[in-house]
Design a protein around this nucleic acid. Structure first.
Length: 826
DNA sequence: CATTCCCGCCACCGG
DNA sequence: CCGGTGGCGGGAATG
C-alpha cells in the first residue's frame, strides 16, 4: 500500500493564486491547512466559497481531516485517505478551481492577464493534458482565448453574458428543446413497450436530426481569437461544451440529464444504439465538461428521479440569460439593423466551410490570393484577427446579403434569391481565391450602397448592403468588434458538411418523424408522467444568484437595443444513400434516411455594436433565412411555439420524409423570416402583417415590446389564435417567475405563405400552446412537453403542399404531458 | 455492479 | 520533424 503523503495532499490543496496580473510564476504561499485559501480579493473569496460548494465534498473531508487530525489516531486513517492523492484530489473540478483562482473573474482592462500553459501546469502540478480540458471549455465560454502556442488570454466572465445569450439563441435555433422532448418521449414509450423497436427507430431517426458536426460559436467581440486556433476540426470539446450549455439555456427547467445531453450531442445520425461505446465516451466527456462548468458554478450536479430511476443530471445555476428580447429574429422587426458585420463574419466562416467542402483541407486558407486579402484586411484593422478564412466568409456573407435583399427586403435584385442562392456562391467559390472578390463584386453591383469601402473583400459591405448600417460600422472588421456593449451578434461556423446545406439551401430539420407516428399515440391520456423534481440541496446553498447579477450589470453595458444577430446555418442533409447503412431492423425502409443537421458552428457573437438604433434585425433575419434555421421560439407566454418551416418543401430535399407527427418543431427561420421581414419592414406600426403567422407575429411583437406580453394579435384571419394569457408579467423572464397556466391550450394554425420564393408553400400547422410552460426557478414540478400523437383530440391535420405538390405535411398537435421529476442534489 | 472520470496513448496539426 | 493539442477509451476509484 502506499503510504499516504500528508503533505502531498495538503500541498495540493493550496491554491496558487495569483493576482490577475501575475505572469511569472510565483510561488504560492504555502498554506497547508486551508485548502481554499484565497484571500486575494473579495471576489476571490467569494469565488472560493462558491467553488467550494461543488467540490465541497472534498473540502469537507479535508476539513474534517484537519479537525480530526487534531484528534489522534483517527488521524492516521483519515490521513491515509486524504493523504493519498486520492482521486478526488486530482479531479478536474478541483484542478479547475485552482486554475480559476489564479485569475480574477472580471479582470479590468488594465490587468489583462495572459495564461501560459507551461506555467500553469507547473504551478498546479498537473499534466498538460488536463489543462487543455479546462482551457477548452473556458474557451467555449469565451472566458479565455488562445493567443498562440502556449498562450492564452484571460477574459474572465466579462463575455459570459453575451456568450450565454448567443448560445441560447443558437440552442433555440437548433430546436434542442424539441430534441430533448423527443428523446424523452422515446424513453417514455420505451417504458411502455419495452419491446418495441419501432420506437427506437423513431427516436433514432429524429434524433438524427441533430448534427453531429460541430460548430463552434464564437464571440467576436472584443476578443479575438488567434487565428492559429481557428483551426479546424478539433474543437469538439469546445463545441460539446457549448452545446451542453445550450441545452441548459434552452430547457425550461434548466436541468439536463447526462443521458439526454449525450444523446443530443451525439447527434449524429447514429442509428440508435449504434454505438454504445460512443455513448459512453460522450458521457465521459460530458463529465469532464460538467466538472469545469461546476467549478465555474454555472451548473451543479443533481439527480433526477423519474419513474425510471435516478439519473445523474445537472442544473443550471449560472446567470439567467436575458430573455433574448432583441435577439430573436423577431427583433428584427425593429427597424434598426444591426450591423451585418457579425453575420458576415459568421457567414464567412460558414461559407468557407460550406463552400469548400473539400474535406481534407481548406485550401482557401492557404491560397495565396486569399491570404493576401486577408492580410490586407488585417492590416487594415488590427482588429481583424486571423483572417485566414475571412475571404471565404465574405462570400458567405454576401450570400446572406443577397438573400436578404431578395427575400427580406424584397428587393428586386434577386428575385429568386433563394433558388439561385445556392448555386452561385458555390461554384464561384470553389477553388478560386477570387471567388470572394467576385462575390463582393456582385454584391456591390446589387447594392452599391452596401459597399462603401473600396475593399471588396471586406464584409462590411455585406453588412451594410441595406444601407442601414452606417459606413462606420463597415470600417470595423467584421470579425472583431470593438465594443461589445451594444449588440451581440453571433457568427456560427458550420461544419463543412453543413456548408452544403447552405448552398443547398435545404433547411435542416428533423423530419423524420416517427415512422409510426400514429403508433406512438400513446394513451389517450396524456401520459402524465409526472416527475417530481425536488431539489435536495446539500447544505449550504444559498444560491448564488446575486453575485453574478450584480456583476452582470456592470458588465453588460446595456440592455439597450442590442441586437444580436445570429446566424445559423442549418442544413438538413438528404440522407445519403450510403448512410442507410443499417437501420435497425425492420422498419420501413426509408424513413430514416433523413438526416438533418443543425447549425453547428462556432458562434461568434459580435459585440460590436451598433448603436442602438441599428438593430440587427436585418441580420438576424438574414441569418435565419440564409441558414434556413428552424427554430422554435419559446416565449414565456406561449410556451413553446414552433414555427413550422413550411418552406422545407421549397427546398427540395427529396430525402425528407415528413411524417405527420413531428413536424411541429421545426420552426424555420425561413418561414418565419418572411413574415418577420414584412413586419419588420413595416416597422413597428404594422401590427398587422400580411400573412405572418399569428403566433410568430405575436411573438415578435411581444418581444419587441410593441405589444404587451399577453396580448396577441391575430394577424391572419386564417390563423386562429387563442390568446393564452393577457398578463403582462408573463413575458418577463428575468428574475421573476412566471406563472404557469394550465390546461389552456390554444391551437394555432399558422399559415405560411412564401410567396415569392420558390413558390408558394403554405403550411398550416396547428399548434398548441401550452400556456405557460415556465416553471418557477425552483422547480418543484417540471412539466415536460411531449408531442402528441396524431389523432389526439386536438389534432388537426393540416396539409401543406408545396408547389410541387410532392410534399405535404400534416401535423399532429402537441400535447404536453406533465412529468414530475425529482431532483436531488448532492 | 454502476457511476465518475483520471490517465495517458497516440493521431493530428501547425509551425 | 518536432512539440503542442486534444480525441479517445481503458480501467481504476468510488458510490
Amino acid at each position: 500500500l502506499k503510504t499516504p503523503l500528508k503533505q502531498a495532499a495538503t500541498s495540493q490543496l493550496v491554491l496558487t493564486e495569483r493576482q490577475p496580473d501575475c505572469q511569472p510564476l510565483t510561488t504560492p504561499p504555502k498554506s497547508k491547512e486551508t485548502p481554499p485559501a484565497d484571500p486575494w480579493t473579495p471576489t476571490s473569496n467569494l469565488k472560493m466559497l462558491i467553488s467550494a460548494a461543488s467540490p465541497e465534498i472534498r473540502s469537507r473531508e479535508q476539513r474534517r481531516q484537519l479537525s480530526d487530525c487534531s484528534s489522534e489516531e483517527h488521524l492516521l486513517a483519515d490521513e491515509y485517505e486524504k493523504s493519498q492523492p486520492s482521486r478526488k484530489e486530482k479531479s478536474l473540478g478541483l484542478l479547475c478551481h485552482k486554475f480559476l483562482a489564479r485569475y480574477p473573474d472580471y479582470p479590468s482592462a488594465s490587468q489583462k492577464s495572459y495564461i501560459c500553459l507551461d506555467e500553469v501546469t507547473e504551478e498546479l502540478h498537473v499534466e498538460r493534458r488536463r489543462i487543455y480540458d479546462i482551457v477548452n471549455v473556458l474557451e467555449s465560454l469565451h472566458m479565455v482565448s488562445r493567443l498562440a502556442r502556449n498562450r492564452y488570454v484571460w477574459h474572465g466572465r466579462h463575455n459570459l453574458p453575451q456568450t450565454l445569450q448567443a448560445l441560447k439563441k443558437v440552442g433555440e435555433e437548433n430546436k434542442y428543446i424539441q430534441q430533448i422532448q423527443m428523446i424523452k418521449k422515446r424513453e417514455y414509450e420505451h417504458e411502455f413497450d419495452p419491446d418495441c423497436e419501432r420506437n427506437e427507430e423513431m427516436a433514432s431517426s429524429f434524433g438524427s436530426s441533430e448534427q453531429s458536426e460541430m460548430s463552434f460559436v464564437e464571440l467576436p467581440g472584443v476578443e479575438f481569437r488567434a487565428a492559429s486556433v481557428n483551426g479546424r476540426k478539433y474543437k469538439s470539446l469546445r463545441v460539446m461544451s457549448q452545446k451542453f450549455v445550450m441545452l441548459f439555456l434552452v430547457s425550461t427547467p434548466q436541468i439536463v440529464s447526462l443521458e439526454v445531453a449525450a444523446k443530443i450531442l451525439i447527434g449524429e445520425d447514429q442509428l440508435e444504439d449504434l454505438d454504445k461505446s460512443k455513448f459512453k465516451t460522450k458521457i465521459r466527456r460530458l463529465y469532464d465538461i460538467a466538472n469545469v462548468l461546476s467549478s465555474l458554478k454555472l451548473i451543479k450536479k443533481v439527480h433526477v428521479t423519474e419513474e425510471r430511476g435516478r439519473k445523474p443530471a445537472f442544473k443550471w445555476t449560472g446567470p439567467e440569460v436575458l430573455p433574448n428580447i432583441q435577439d430573436t429574429k423577431l427583433e428584427a422587426t425593429s427597424t434598426i439593423c444591426s450591423p451585418p458585420i457579425s453575420e458576415s463574419i459568421s457567414s464567412k466562416e460558414q461559407c468557407s466551410k460550406t463552400l469548400f467542402p473539400s474535406k481534407g483541407k481548406q485550401n482557401f486558407t492557404r491560397h495565396s490570393s486569399l491570404i493576401k486579402l486577408v492580410k490586407s484586411i488585417e492590416n487594415d484593422r488590427r482588429k481583424i484577427q486571423s483572417a485566414p478564412t475571412s475571404p471565404v466568409k465574405i462570400s458567405a456573407s454576401i450570400f446572406v446579403f443577397l438573400f436578404q435583399l431578395g427575400t427580406y427586403q424584397s428587393l428586386p435584385v434577386f428575385p429568386n434569391t433563394v433558388t439561385q442562392f445556392p448555386a452561385i456562391p458555390k461554384h464561384q467559390l470553389e477553388g478560386q481565391s477570387k471567388t470572394a472578390e467576385e462575390v463582393q463584386m456582385k454584391c456591390a453591383l446589387s447594392s452599391p450602397e452596401t459597399v462603401p469601402k473600396p475593399e471588396p473583400s471586406q464584409q462590411p459591405a455585406l453588412s451594410q448592403p441595406l444601407g442601414v448600417c452606417p459606413a462606420s460600422h463597415s470600417s470595423v472588421s467584421p470579425v472583431i468588434l470593438p465594443h461589445p456593449q451594444s449588440g451581440v451578434s453571433y457568427a456560427i461556423y458550420l461544419h463543412p458538411s453543413q456548408a452544403h446545406t447552405v448552398t443547398t439551401y435545404s433547411p435542416g430539420f428533423m423530419l423524420q418523424p416517427l415512422p409510426c407516428a400514429n403508433v406512438t399515440g400513446v394513451k389517450s391520456n396524456n401520459s402524465k408522467v409526472l416527475n417530481k423534481i425536488t431539489t435536495e440541496e446539500g447544505d449550504n446553498q444559498r444560491d448564488m444568484d446575486e453575485p453574478t447579477k450584480s456583476l452582470a450589470h456592470e458588465e453588460r453595458p446595456d440592455t439597450k437595443p442590442e441586437t444580436s444577430s445570429q446566424r445559423c446555418l442549418k442544413r438538413s442533409q438528404p440522407l445519403q444513400e450510403n448512410n442507410l447503412i443499417k437501420r435497425r431492423r425492420s422498419n420501413e425502409e426509408s424513413l430514416d434516411t433523413s438526416s438533418t443537421f443543425f447549425p453547428s458552428g462556432y458562434l461568434i457573437p459580435l459585440t460590436h455594436c451598433t448603436h442602438g438604433n441599428k438593430a440587427d434585425c436585418s441580420n438576424k433575419e438574414k441569418a435565419g433565412v440564409c441558414s434556413l434555421q428552424h427554430t422554435a421560439y419559446s416565449s414565456p407566454i406561449t410556451g413553446v411555439i414552433t414555427m413550422p418551416a413550411s418552406e422545407l418543401k421549397t427546398v427540395n430535399i427529396p430525402a425528407f420524409h415528413i411524417t405527420p407527427l413531428n413536424i411541429m418543431l421545426s420552426p424555420n427561420s425561413i418561414a418565419a423570416a418572411p413574415v418577420l421581414s414584412n413586419s419588420c419592414l413595416n416597422s413597428s406600426s404594422t401590427s398587422s402583417a400580411p400573412n405572418p403567422s399569428s403566433s410568430a407575429l405575436n411573438f415578435m411583437l411581444q418581444h419587441i415590446g410593441l405589444i404587451p406580453a399577453g396580448v396577441q394579435v391575430p394577424a391572419n384571419p386564417v390563423l386562429q389564435h387563442v390568446p393564452v394569457s393577457s398578463q403582462p408579467e408573463n413575458i418577463s423572464h428575468g428574475s421573476g417567475n412566471t406563472n404557469v397556466q394550465e390546461g389552456k391550450v390554444s391551437r394555432n394554425i399558422l399559415q405560411l405563405d412564401r410567396g415569392g420564393l420558390s413558390g408558394k408553400y403554405g403550411a398550416v400547422i396547428p399548434l398548441q400552446q401550452p400556456s405557460a410552460p415556465k416553471v418557477p426557478q425552483e422547480p418543484q414540478a417540471v412539466t415536460e412537453n411531449f408531442f402528441r400523437t396524431p389523432g389526439g383530440p386536438n389534432t388537426e391535420p393540416s396539409l401543406s403542399a408545396n408547389s410541387d405538390g410532392t410534399e405535404r405535411i400534416s401535423q399532429g398537435t402537441l400535447y404536453i404531458p406533465q412529468r414530475k421529476l425529482e431532483v436531488s442534489e448532492d
